[in-house]
């Protein structure tokens, strides 16, 4: 029996976390949650998720710094990361890609777009 894939949701907003969980509710993934960049990095090291959905603006450590930490960590550096940004302007997206994200979605989150990007990166 194959193990279910894990997705780590990193966001300080309860609203966004709930929306993401509801979108992923019927998908075959186990959901992990962290509420800031630092906790997100620590959970990623401990739980080895198959994919991370990372918010940008968060307390303690923002999403870009957390992503840089992940890419610098030998054991989790290849984990696909989708940035969840409020602002979809070029500069934000460029910073995300420079930090090493694989893809991005903008808020308000479109469920079909998010599921499609997750499936592209780790399959359903």
């Amino acid at each position: 029996m194959t193990q279910r894939k894990k997705i780590l949701l990193v966001d300080d907003s309860s609203t966004v976390l709930m929306v993401e969980q509801m979108i992923l509710r019927n998908s075959p993934f186990d959901i992990l949650i962290a509420r800031d960049g630092e906790a997100g990095f620590e959970t990623a090291v401990k739980e080895r998720p198959d994919l991370i959905l990372m918010d940008v603006m968060m307390p303690r450590m923002d999403g870009f710094d957390a992503l840089r930490e992940i890419r610098a960590h030998e054991e989790i550096k290849d984990t696909p990361v989708i940035m969840v940004t409020t602002r979809g302007e070029g500069v934000n997206i460029e910073t995300g890609y420079t930090a090493g994200c694989n893809d991005y979605v903008t808020k308000p989150i479109n469920g079909s777009e998010l599921l499609s990007k997750i499936n592209n990166l780790i399959g359903s």
Partner: peptide, 13 residues
């Protein structure tokens, strides 16, 4: 899927 997302947003709100 869009309807589900909409319902999810409304439910969460």
């Amino acid at each position: 899927e869009q309807q589900n997302t909409n319902l999810a947003n409304l439910y969460v709100a």
